[in-house]
Design a protein around this nucleic acid. Structure first.
Lengths: 335, 335
DNA sequence: CTGAAAGCGCTAACAG
DNA sequence: CTGTTAGCGCTTTCAG
């Protein structure tokens, strides 16, 4: 059986409370007593029981982090940012995978809330952040921050880029590189997919290019689906000469499809992704992308969450937009 | 305030105990009472308080998973395997990053143990799995399973490949492809680094090639260090014509260095990694590798851990070796 | 089948 | 500065 405060107390002939206070370096305890307690605790290798403590303080120092896909290193990078900020403050991070599925996400969140996490960071999978869920979390008074994907019409804490900016930045870049038949491999039904599409459309319009419906194709969210999507684009009678992809994995799959078809990247088809995952530079063709500062998103979200968790009353929702940045590598450099 | 059993009990005019038993479908409770309780609980959206329950049952249904690097998708894949098995059983997985640092790892493990995780899965960062730590975990009676890396002389549960086999398989393959100056980009001071080196040396010996000390170079564990290591190899008066790399990220970095130097992969330098990360196929040159069945490792480790957690008394340590498999892609295919 | 009593290990609030 | 009292929400044990 593990050592308890009670053991130390009896051992030292003081009361349990004295031990409790000493260990937490409470103010009203004499220097001497504190030291005696601390010393004995160290000797006995006392480890506080978090469970018991949590039961009374109602703080678990656990933070849930719900993401759609651990394997997508974009989220792994975010996780790193979150951990970097929260770790030193004594929080444990519980990562849950929603598999990009709304139901799973819902279940995961409920699980975490039931486990009394002190806060929640979520990259939501569904387009509409279900109102009932938001209310549910709020009614349980669990502060939460949404990241990377901002569902429509939800007034919540958010950290991430403006998706429309990402789409515009990428598409404008392709235009600048001389592309005139610009396609878009669209993402899944996640909240950020629509914004990127809108940005793409907007940029085309700005340049006076007329939209071609066939150029908007479902590219899924990983390399396998991106590959499939690109193959469909290549079968068109007038295949695109530039493609803005929902994210980097999709873009990597697209590059593979183009090369397999005997065409060149970027000469025949320029490709750009989004997310700037760390291995982008090592891909078949080094990938141009829109950097979203994934780690920074994680850090900011963590900061914001800490702020909310420490506040007595919930502060008004805050949105932090992080400027996306164009990163030009080989896959789109035509001149 | 959340609904408690007490609330349901008072509401229904029964005792707290009746509610408790009904909710856990304890045997000695009448069908009727149970239904009444269940119904009311649903109506009030009762959610059991895990903390309180844990305090008395001494089970948290949390499992710690300590890995050296979340960003290395090899571990993300393992995590997926672990989650797939443990999730349905009601366990939450708490992922901790040791940053490949022994001290951090130690601290993370202690933290998790303090938080009363029911079990632990660890991909150890240090070469010697510190005895004191192992004893410490054991004294707290927390079952644990080591994965991917088996420290020397430790009698513990283990799931993973035999590292020596990986080294032999890879090196023999390079030999078969006609390489005669085979180098090795060695991994960090992790437990699996030495075994792979040994396998490499063994394979050379078998083929009657004499070992060249200059051909064993530190390649670190990611693409940046792999790149550096390869550059050093290329500066040798007789640069290698084949390189076995500690893992896939290192190999990806190595490929980059070779191409940058104006040489071709695999014609001038054949390269093979280990781990078969999911994007290997999308790299600059599709990467040959040794597949270690990362997801399967995660699943098996989870199974083994569950077995230990459910056992009354600790079962004897078990080692599960997973056969590594050669995956030949472009980076080493010479004929 | 139902419930009363005791306690998991700790802390908040207050009294000495 | 130190200690007492009273729980946190739940389960285990055992008596009705």
């Amino acid at each position: 059986m593990a050592v308890r405060m009670k053991d130390i107390a009896e051992d030292l002939g003081v009361s349990l409370m004295t031990v409790s206070k000493a260990l937490r370096s409470h103010s009203d305890i004499s220097e001497e007593t504190r030291n005696r307690v601390l010393k004995r605790a160290r000797e006995l290798d006392y480890q506080p029981n978090w469970i018991a403590r949590s039961l009374v303080t109602r703080r678990t120092y656990m933070v849930g982090f719900v993401i759609p896909d651990l394997m997508h290193s974009f989220f792994a990078e975010m996780a790193k940012g979150v951990a970097r900020k929260l770790g030193p403050l004594g929080y444990q991070i519980v990562i849950s995978n929603s598999e990009e599925d709304a139901e799973t996400e819902h279940r995961q969140i409920e699980l975490l809330v039931n486990r009394n996490v002190d806060g929640l960071i979520v990259a939501p999978a569904r387009e509409k952040w279900r109102k009932s869920l938001a209310d549910n979390i709020r009614s349980r008074k669990v502060p939460f921050v949404l990241v990377d994907r901002m569902p429509e019409r939800v007034d919540a804490n958010y950290v991430g880029a403006r998706d429309q900016d990402i789409g515009e930045l990428a598409t404008a870049h392709l235009f600048e590189q001389g592309c005139r038949r610009i396609a878009h491999l669209q993402g899944p039904a996640a909240p950020n997919s629509k914004g990127r599409l809108r940005g793409y459309q907007h940029a085309l319009e700005k340049q006076g290019l007329k939209p071609v419906p066939e150029y908007i194709v479902d590219g899924g969210r990983d390399d396998a689906t991106g590959y499939e999507g690109m193959r469909r684009l290549l079968k068109l009678s007038a295949p695109p000469d530039g493609v803005f992809c929902y994210n980097d994995p999709v873009a990597a799959g697209a590059v593979k499809a183009v090369l397999e078809s005997g065409l060149r990247v970027p000469e025949d088809v320029a490709i750009i992704g989004a997310g700037n995952v760390h291995y982008s530079d090592l891909l078949r063709v080094p990938l141009s992308t829109i950097d979203q500062s994934s780690t920074l998103i994680g850090e900011s979200a963590a900061d914001l969450l800490v702020h909310c968790m420490e506040a007595k009353t919930a502060p008004p929702p805050k949105r932090i937009f992080i400027e996306p940045k164009l990163v030009v590598r080989e896959s789109s450099r035509r001149r």
